[in-house]
Design a protein around this nucleic acid. Structure first.
Lengths: 124, 124
DNA sequence: CGACTGCATCGATGAACGTCGATGCAAGAT
DNA sequence: ATCTTGCATCGACGTTCATCGATGCAGTCG
């Protein structure tokens, strides 16, 4: 599976996926952009927030849909995009489908946007 | 009593809209989404990275344009979107226009995507 | 002064996106 | 088995986006 804070060798992650420290590689940009694009919609942002801030870590779709003035297929569509971006995961339990956050994704984005250091000994 | 950083109970959370702690407000989502949308493109992601990782903190457009296989108007368009999102700022010095990162924007996004606490008392 | 360079803006075009109603499928209820 | 509910998928429609060539504006150089 995906190693969130994988420190072991052989992982597909580079050493410094920090957007603010070194120029982003073309492949890295192509990999990161869709995830940011998934967050570039108010509805998806609120959906992710509702899922992530849930105590049990899981939310039923039946709790998400009535929170918006949108049709049920539209909410399902946004959830699918968030799922394809690797931000959330779905699990069917009986009649209902529960969604939960995949913290590795948000952790990665937060790391990408975090300034590593104010360059203490960085001369040339 | 604790008076360092307002970590006590009843802390006002209006200053720190953490996406992963509480359901995002509709207005907050509408304000945050365009910024994420600006990052949802590989070209803009690389542009921002090239600007942010510059030592002097400033990059001339003439250094950015030849780094892509795109026309100059297209690069200018992407820079405009990043500027409108509040991520970068432009300054004209003589013939050339220099862009620099606005760290407040990326700091805010990083904070939004950061998990506040690793569940101190909620471990099973 | 006029010519040239760097960058932004304009108008157009094809692709992608957000949204909807209709429909399909899975699982529980009767 | 049949009906009902919860959710995903499909097809369609209008809007937005990414990209381009052409053009305009600001500053420099000869």
């Amino acid at each position: 599976m995906v190693s969130a804070d994988g420190a072991g060798p052989g992982t597909a992650e580079r050493c410094c996926p920090t957007l603010l420290a070194a120029p982003l590689d073309e492949d890295q940009a192509a990999e990161l952009a869709p995830v940011f694009k998934a967050l570039g919609d108010p509805v998806r942002l609120r959906l992710l927030s509702m899922i992530a801030s849930r105590a049990g870590g899981e939310v039923c779709v039946c709790d998400l849909t009535p929170a918006f003035a949108l049709s049920q297929p539209t909410i399902s569509h946004h959830l699918k995009l968030l799922r394809q971006a690797g931000l959330i995961a779905a699990e069917r339990r009986g009649t209902w489908v529960h969604y939960r956050l995949l913290p590795a994704a948000t952790d990665r984005l937060a790391a990408v946007l975090t300034r590593p250091a104010p360059d203490p000994a960085a001369t040339s």
